[in-house]
């Protein structure tokens, strides 16, 4: 691109941005807000009032987000399976390289963690894809209508406490299944030792994604904060969360899975010399010398 073309592109971009800015001022509605910021943020945590209909049942918006994200991922996988994977070549193209890199990443993580890794790789791949895509889904701002007739932007699926608990507990159960596969009933005992794991996994996800959702809600609640700032907020609280939380959960799951499925016996502990016995021996020797 020449200097002249670059300048032209920048001018066009600035004009489009200006048009959108003016349009946003012109289309501002004067309808008073039905919820205060406190209510909005409380609802983001507790989902008291803003529920959406799914299969004839009022559910938290996070569940609807989860279904949509799953749908997007399944459609993407289906397209890849039908049109991309059959055309895979020995020397890969860009999309093939991307798919192979992602699959290899989780596969290597699973292989590095445990000897029993047939399902582990697939599980952490699915969990990682779900967390990453689900968190990025928040950026799209897909609108849904609540049961009360209000319009809401769909949040990340795991910012819903129910979704986070599901992911944390399922990962824990999956780790336990690895323990059973590697050590039989002893593996259950090994997994139960880490009793705090489902809570920590669940609430880590919930806390991280909820904080992102709350900051986003806060920013978008006020019109004045809705210019430029969302760019940074989106990167800081959504893109980074998507990467970090996907990595953390998959890494922890594979780590604990490898730990509980490891069937190598622990090294024998060295016997410590009894301090009291030694003291008595020294005392006896001193007495003899004195005598």
């Amino acid at each position: 691109m020449t200097k002249k073309e670059r300048r032209k592109a920048i001018i066009i971009f600035a004009v489009i941005a200006l048009v959108f800015l003016i349009a946003s001022f012109l289309t501002a509605s004067n309808v008073p807000k039905t919820e205060t910021v406190q209510e909005v943020m409380r609802d983001a945590v507790l989902h008291d009032s803003n529920k959406v209909m799914l299969l004839g049942r009022a559910v938290n918006p996070g569940l609807l987000s989860g279904v949509i994200v799953s749908g997007i991922l399944i459609v993407f996988a289906l397209i890849c399976r039908l049109f991309v994977i059959p055309r895979f070549k020995i020397v890969p193209g860009r999309l093939q390289m991307f798919l192979e890199t992602v699959v290899s990443l989780f596969d290597n993580m699973a292989k590095g963690s445990s000897k029993i890794n047939r399902v582990l790789g697939a599980y952490i791949f699915a969990a990682g894809a779900y967390i990453f895509t689900g968190t990025l889904f928040e950026l799209l701002g897909v609108q849904a209508v609540t049961t009360e007739g209000l319009s809401i932007s769909l949040p990340a699926p795991l910012s819903d406490i129910n979704g986070a608990i599901m992911m944390g507990c399922l990962s824990y159960l999956f780790i336990m299944s690895g323990g059973v596969a590697g050590n039989g009933l002893k593996g259950i005992g090994k997994t139960l030792k880490e009793y705090s794991l489902p809570i920590s996994l669940s609430f880590r996800l919930f806390g991280a994604l909820l904080s992102g959702a709350l900051v986003t809600e806060l920013v978008y609640y006020y019109s004045s904060l809705s210019y430029v700032l969302p760019v940074f907020v989106g990167v800081l609280f959504t893109l980074l969360h998507a990467l970090i939380q996907a990595y953390v959960l998959t890494m922890l799951t594979s780590l604990f899975y490898g730990q509980v499925s490891d069937d190598t016996p622990p090294p024998p502990k060295e016997k410590k010399a009894k301090k009291t016995g030694r003291k008595n021996k020294v005392k006896d020797q001193t007495d003899k010398k004195a005598a």
């Binding site: 399944i74 994977i85 699915a126």
Partner: peptide, 24 residues
């Protein structure tokens, strides 16, 4: 809702495993 989330994720896990992870 936790069960619904679980159902949703299980379907996703199965689909991704069969359609994407395993073939790749």
């Amino acid at each position: 809702q936790i069960m619904l989330h679980l159902l949703n994720f299980t379907i996703l896990f199965g689909a991704l495993w069969i359609l994407l992870y395993k073939p790749v």
